[in-house]
Write a protein that binds this DNA or RNA. Structure first.
Length: 230
DNA sequence: GCGACAG
DNA sequence: ATCTTGTCGC
């Protein structure tokens, strides 16, 4: 697969790409088993163009880490709300291609179709890599929702322009919810079900939390670039 | 025009 | 996102 380069795009061109990619999105009930799930995330030093990308593989539903891929890359596209994919997908794709084993489902840090043009980073990555994805974000980008009951597991629909695009999911009692949405080859109920099964003892579900941990350690030089088996 | 705004 | 200090609660 040719390496993507989004660095010279204007936001107007990026918008056009999102509108075109939207026609390639597949939102449907999960029709495959999940034995290996993965988490993807990026870490970087403020004001630096170097980004540290990583994808960690875990056995499902045991949530035991089995390996991870780490890649360092230069990025020029800035962070612009609504265009996160153009900044992070190229590096994540590099990490994806270094994986020695592909997960059945990838959890991306950010939104799936809970996006102004239904093309959040998880949906974008899913289309480009042609692989099932879901998005798991800490904050809402667009849409409205009712606060879910305070009990762990409670969830309410995230609605944007009269359409249910995701859900606010309470992963711990009396703690702020996370926002999940399908990215590719998943639907909202299936996304809530899978992410609910990925919750350990923290607010952030294990795939995302462990991906964040490992890319951070990678950025700090505590772990080497490349694929590592655990 | 005004507020909101993933990471 | 990253960094930092301080507080609350199990």
């Amino acid at each position: 697969m040719a390496t993507l380069n989004y660095d010279t795009l204007t936001v107007t061109a990026a918008t056009q790409i999102q509108n075109e990619m939207r026609n390639e999105t597949i939102i449907q009930a999960r029709d495959f088993p999940v034995n290996i799930i993965a988490g993807a995330d990026i870490s970087f030093n403020k004001f630096s163009t170097t980004v540290y990308a990583g994808i960690i593989l875990l056995q499902f539903p045991q949530l035991i880490p089995i390996g991870y891929s780490l890649v360092k890359k230069e990025v020029l596209f800035p962070y612009v709300p609504g265009y996160l994919a153009f900044r992070e997908v190229p590096a994540l794709l590099a990490a994806w291609e270094n994986l020695q084993q592909r997960p059945d489902l990838l959890v991306v840090d950010g939104h799936g179709i809970a996006h102004p043009r239904r093309m959040g980073i998880a949906a974008h990555f899913g289309v480009v890599a042609n692989t099932p994805t879901v998005g798991c974000a800490k904050k809402v980008l667009c849409g409205k929702y009712e606060e879910p009951p305070s009990e762990k597991g409670s969830n309410t629909p995230l609605v944007f322009k009269n359409e249910v695009v995701g859900a606010a999911l309470r992963t711990k009692n009396a703690v702020k919810p996370v926002f999940v949405s399908p990215g590719y080859r998943m639907d909202v109920p299936g996304t809530v079900e899978i992410i609910s099964q990925c919750v350990g003892r923290y607010r952030i579900p294990e795939p995302t939390r462990l991906a964040h941990n490992i890319v951070n350690r990678f950025r700090l030089g505590e772990v080497p670039e490349g694929f590592t088996l655990m």
